[in-house]
Design a binder for these strands. Sequence first.
DNA 1: AGTACCACCTGACGGC
DNA 2: TGCCGTCAGGTGGTAC
Length: 260
Amino acid sequence: MPELPDVEVYRRRLAHAGLHRPIERVRVRDSTVLRGFSSQRVTRALRGHRLVDTSRRGKHLFAAMSDPATLVMHFGMTGVLQVHDRLHEPGPHERMALEFRDGGVLSIVDQRKLGFVTVVDDVTAYCHDHDLGPDALALGLGDLRALLRGYRGGVKSLLMEQSSIAGIGNIYSDEIVFQARIDPRRPAASLDDAAVRRLHRQMSRVLRLAADRGADPSRFPEGWLLRHRQHHAPCPRGNGQIQKIRLGGRGAYYCPACQR
DNA sequence: AGTACCACCTGACGGC
DNA sequence: TGCCGTCAGGTGGTAC
């Protein structure tokens, strides 16, 4: 699940229900999510403090603490952030949880364990060290134009390049180029100005709309590719058949009739 | 610089 | 029913 819209949904959930609640206990149920950080260090940074502010950059979620530290969360392929008002029994894939003094629980569930949690002092330095580009929703038309011009690979590949644009993954890159009617393999530098504008408009529109609908595909418009992401499915625009191809080792879906 | 492949993990699915 | 290969919305390292 977790591309930009999903992580934005988690951020809003955290901002709405997880702030200013004193943390009484930290449950680390699978320390591999800490990627080498010790449970002691993370527990020390969190216990007795509160989360006071949220932010997001691409697929990374940050929660500033009431001391100088910041909690960093990444959700990999299957991570989910849940906030419960009352004590909640951990499910089988819960990796870590914060128990609030008021009895509520913030729980991180991640079946495949490709996500991680860490604590940092300096978010800006963290983003720099991890080569994280600007958030996709903060990218202006001129920024996107410059990135496209300077990139020698395909459009979809650039959209997924986290060091250039943070937040877009396999699913939403397919959706964005579908809505912009651009072939995913088309060389980025070959887009004319009209195509660059379509791509920029659809990038913002798709990501914002998806987040506003809770990143729940069943609530997405019928005309979205997301709802027809199957080899040989009819194109929701009625022009052709969806094709599945292999791009960078991953499945990419597109409509050869609409996307050029 | 861009791409291809592997690794990290778990689970679901189709074919035999 | 069981076994096997493949695939799944992420990222990092390596080797062209």
